[in-house]
Design a binder for these strands. Sequence first.
DNA 1: CAGAAACGGTACCGATCGGTTCAATATTGT
DNA 2: ACAATATTGAACCGATCGGTACCGTTTCTG
Lengths: 184, 184
Amino acid sequence: MPTHARDRLLETAERLFYTEGIRAVGVERILAESGVGRASFYRHFASKEELVLAVLRERDERWRHWLEESVTARGGEPLVVFDALAERFARGDFRGCAFINTMVETADPGSAAHRVAAEHKRRVTSYVDGLLAAAGRPDHAALAEQFILLMDGAIVTALREGTAEPAHRARSVAVALLSSPSSG
Amino acid sequence: MPTHARDRLLETAERLFYTEGIRAVGVERILAESGVGRASFYRHFASKEELVLAVLRERDERWRHWLEESVTARGGEPLVVFDALAERFARGDFRGCAFINTMVETADPGSAAHRVAAEHKRRVTSYVDGLLAAAGRPDHAALAEQFILLMDGAIVTALREGTAEPAHRARSVAVALLSSPSSG
DNA sequence: CAGAAACGGTACCGATCGGTTCAATATTGT
DNA sequence: ACAATATTGAACCGATCGGTACCGTTTCTG
């Protein structure tokens, strides 16, 4: 457990927001589970909204770092992103994509949370684009957007079915996509 | 505007739940916008949760009916489901899939709302499976699940990007999938 | 060791949550 | 026309929401 109150707040909030949803978790709950006093909370974050943004920004960094590590460890071929997803889906605490969930919970497309979530996807797309370019695909830009669509489809499907199988399903589609004449 | 209080409640709740989220819309709001009295509400629905379930069940029926009509009007080939989606995405009030959104908002996978949402996807999958079978695909079952994954991916992508383009993106992936040797 | 900074706990704020109850009114079927 | 039914509106309930102010204590730092 981190020593500083701010770190404990971020850690507790990230866990609760992800597993139960942002709206579903009140400040009271975060204080109780983190052991941080009410005054300390508002000394570190101007509002719950600010905490939400801090959590999302940190998760964006960590998630992309995890993906890059996982892909590299698997050899760096574009298709292994789906193997990385499968590993993620198999975790007991898997609850979908925190950024998709945020966009769903935050109806307003102009809100800061929505923008952070959109920015996250842009960065992941950029990374996958790099993988496809490194693999020698001349159509890497278009393929990257299709890969992200497949990844997001796999994520929401895994959330619904509760298994890791959608990752393999998406991977098989990606294989067909990569071997398709119109994309080679 | 429907005459009966129950119909007005369902209509108002469906609109508000879809555009702003289930948790974000209180009973107060639904009463104000529907013009229904508080007592009448609880005479027709035992709780807000019951209203949510009724709304989801009705939307399930209506959405699948719309899809079937739209696909039939386009000739009935499996690929036209993505053209139907594109039409949906272009509507100004598009806010993703109400059932995906419900699963995201309702963390508990055992909740009634979660089960209704899962059942909806099962029915849509079954319909798409029928389209693929009618098109003479021997691998229609596996293809249907991949189609649904593509559709869900397109939906969340359209929610993020705010355009109808993801429908075309998913369709191009489906084209590659259908022409792939491993699936023919 | 002393002063400053950070801290946890509590009482409190107005607003809203989902839900109950009761009275007055409108609509309906016979 | 009359009685039964369905309706709206408002008062009220305990609980919780996000947020503020204050107090006494711990912890770090010079």
